[in-house]
Amino acid sequence: MDYTQHLLLFVIAVIANGFSALAGGGAGLIQLPILIFMGLPFSLALATHKIATVALGLGATIRHVKEKHSSIRLLALMLMAGIPGVILGAYLIIDVNDRWAEIILGALTLSLALYSMMKPQLGLEGRLLHRDMSGIIIGAVGLFIIGFANGALSAGSGLFVTLWLVYWFGLDYRLAVAHTLIAVGLGWNASGAITMTLLAEVKWDWLPALVCGSLVGGYLGAHSSIKAGSIWIKRCYELVTLIVGIKLLAG
């Protein structure tokens, strides 16, 4: 690849990860299909994309940590419940039909957009929900299932985590996005990247541009989400989930 193609990869990564950091997921909507369009087979594109998205989590974490508004306990729960699911999903996706997996994920993602739209007040104000033992266990099971989807496909699974944190634990969208970007963007994606590296080849010479773009996009998107109110993040979330769902269903 010449320098213009590397510059294109960088710009794509900035845009994809910037929107993802603002909405709480969806980087795979733009970045993964473009890697495939540029000539990489699915498994190679997925492994390369997984590694690059770790930089998204790093960039977003650097910005969100400055605000000191994340819960260490909730982040620990997300990591302990989600990472085993991520690893399991990455292993099992090898034997699963990609198209059927995309259709199922697309239908579920589209349902997220419709559910959020039908609940105008959802996630605008934070509440403490399901913080007892049974609530935490159910919350952990939900995170494990979403982690499995994250490991299997990298196209909007972070959006599920964001809504799950809003719906089940009562976070507003701003805090939910912050926790998603730290736990999923950094912790889950790192474990998925390591697993995929062991299972599939990686296009290493494409990674510098993708990693730099993901880092910049993650930071800028996180900064935008902090400055924006929950209502704007909610609208952005609904738009991204709607587009991701339609894109996955359309193929």
Rank of each mutant, 00 (worst) to 15 (best):
I62L: 12
W206R: 04
Y115P: 13
E125H: 10
M80Q: 00
P120T: 02
D172R: 03
L248T: 06
H130T: 00
D95Y: 15
A113F: 13
T48R: 10
L165Q: 03
F37Y: 05
L58G: 05
G217Q: 04
L143C: 12
L108R: 03
Y167I: 15
A13Y: 11
L79V: 15
I34K: 06
M78N: 06
A178H: 08
G158V: 15
N189K: 11
Q31D: 00
G229D: 11
N97H: 11
L114I: 13
M78D: 11
R73S: 15
R235Y: 14
P208W: 15
A27F: 00
A155Q: 13
G218N: 00
Q31K: 02
G85N: 05
L171T: 01
F42D: 09
A107N: 06
V240W: 02
G126C: 02
L29M: 06
V240Q: 05
M80W: 02
Q5H: 13
G28L: 00
L199Y: 12
A81K: 10
T53I: 15
A200H: 14
A21S: 15
R73Q: 09
G18T: 07
G221C: 00
L199W: 02
N150V: 15
V244H: 01
A152I: 04
P41G: 12
L114R: 08
F160P: 14
L35C: 03
L198T: 13
W168C: 04
G106K: 07
G25R: 10
I93H: 01
I93V: 14
H179N: 10
V177F: 03
F10L: 15
P33Q: 10
A45R: 07
Y237S: 06
G28M: 04
G25N: 07
H69G: 09
V65I: 05
G147V: 15
G218F: 02
L165K: 10
P33Y: 04
S157Y: 00
I182H: 08
I12M: 14
L7H: 07
L165F: 12
F10P: 09
L128H: 12
S20Y: 05
V211E: 02
T61P: 12
L186K: 06
L171Q: 04
D132M: 12
G135F: 13
S224T: 15
V14F: 10
E102C: 04
L215T: 08
A45D: 12
G187V: 11
L163Q: 07
G229C: 01
L220E: 05
L35A: 11
G24S: 08
I72C: 01
I194G: 08
G57K: 02
L143I: 14
I83S: 11
I246K: 06
A45N: 11
R131L: 10
T197E: 01
A55M: 12
T241G: 11
K234N: 06
T197P: 01
Q5M: 12
G147N: 14
A101G: 15
I104R: 07
A16K: 09
R131I: 06
L75K: 06
T180A: 07
G123M: 08
N17V: 12
L198C: 07
G151R: 07
L248Y: 02
D2I: 14
M1V: 14
I30T: 05
G218I: 13
V202H: 14
G89S: 04
L58Y: 00
L77K: 03
T162C: 10
F148K: 02
L215A: 00
G139K: 06
F144S: 04
N189A: 14
T180D: 13
P84A: 06
A52D: 00
A90C: 08
L58F: 13
G28N: 03
L171W: 09
G59H: 07
